[in-house]
Design a protein around this nucleic acid. Sequence first.
DNA 1: AAAAATAAATGAACAGTGTTCAAAATAAAA
DNA 2: TTTTATTTTGAACACTGTTCATTTATTTTT
Lengths: 207, 207
Amino acid sequence: MGIAERKERDKEELRERILVAAKTLFLEKGVEKTSIRNIADLIEYSPGSIYHYFKDKNEIFHALHQGGFQQLMGRMEVLASVSNPMERLKGMGSIYVQFALENPDMYDLMFIKDAPILHVSNSNEEQWKEGFGTFNFLRSTIKECIDVGHFRGHEEEALSFLVWSTVHGMVSLRIRRRCEVVLAQRQDTIVKDGLNEFFSILDRLSS
Amino acid sequence: MGIAERKERDKEELRERILVAAKTLFLEKGVEKTSIRNIADLIEYSPGSIYHYFKDKNEIFHALHQGGFQQLMGRMEVLASVSNPMERLKGMGSIYVQFALENPDMYDLMFIKDAPILHVSNSNEEQWKEGFGTFNFLRSTIKECIDVGHFRGHEEEALSFLVWSTVHGMVSLRIRRRCEVVLAQRQDTIVKDGLNEFFSILDRLSS
DNA sequence: AAAAATAAATGAACAGTGTTCAAAATAAAA
DNA sequence: TTTTATTTTGAACACTGTTCATTTATTTTT
């Protein structure tokens, strides 16, 4: 009875094709301008078919969203070998910013857009597990820093949120084009410069 | 020949009525779910009329966007009497965060959403004058801090961007519902707590 | 092999969107 | 009053996400 299995595979394959088509169009034109009909056209199926594989448009983009977190987590893996928590923290910042600037549309979907997950279901904790994973990595690194004697007087959770907010703030202002207000000649480097300022501040807080 | 003037007034009045209706609906349902037809219904005009007063939907929301900057700038005015630049800087942070949390939809329109201005015209500097104003206020305050001897080793422009990014990061993560990853019992206070951590860091950099 | 049952794909239909524009209604000027 | 100018209209266009009865394709049973 390998037929049921093959059918399952076929179904999974088409699901994947929808996802690939959606990602292609999304990276070309953004979420809003990617319509179900566009996706259907690209895979040469009718619009209605899509709904046999995904509940709605949000579910499609939530799937891409999850893929983005895996990408980001993958990039962080090189830091496993960095034993100095302070160095690891700065490495995380660099990788995070680099990921955001290299994949602005994906970053936008993951951290800026109205979260697709909110529309898919009443967001229970399960659904946020990707986000939990990355934030926990940051939190545990900062905890290590504190345990080693850095950031005296600061508190783990709030500081973790603050650090995340700082890098998110910089890249999201850039991605959503709010950097026009900084000096014209600085606009291309302002995120990098800001990050360096941040690192030098973190160093000052080390003792 | 007061007729031309009266007509001018009438036109301006209807323009204002459109704006009021747009703002009402926008604060109720958000930009995307506020349609031209909704606005037209509310002021009891046909949809087509709107286009005699605004080029397109973006122009309407850019007008509201400008109003938001005036509001924010207005709140900042109380700081004119704060002579200590360090205190003024922290005051700006508090006011900024408070404004964002009290007017999340307006903040979203001003700093998070795809800038309406980008679609209205090829954004020249003129159009960003509201943004320039607020950022210049931050920059000049930080310059004062540096002149007085704070933030030694840091550079005005990049540090200004970093400070802005930090507060923007916190409130935008909150507004776009990315705080689910922090400890459940901390979610309501995390922005306030993060801001306090930030202030304590700024204090450490004072000397 | 033919018939019945199951599964998958279709495309028209619905209610909505921003925007345009010829025509109609209104107001002002001659 | 007639002519000119302005303002308002609402139908039409080309889209959108989503649903669902109907058709097509495949698998199972007879």
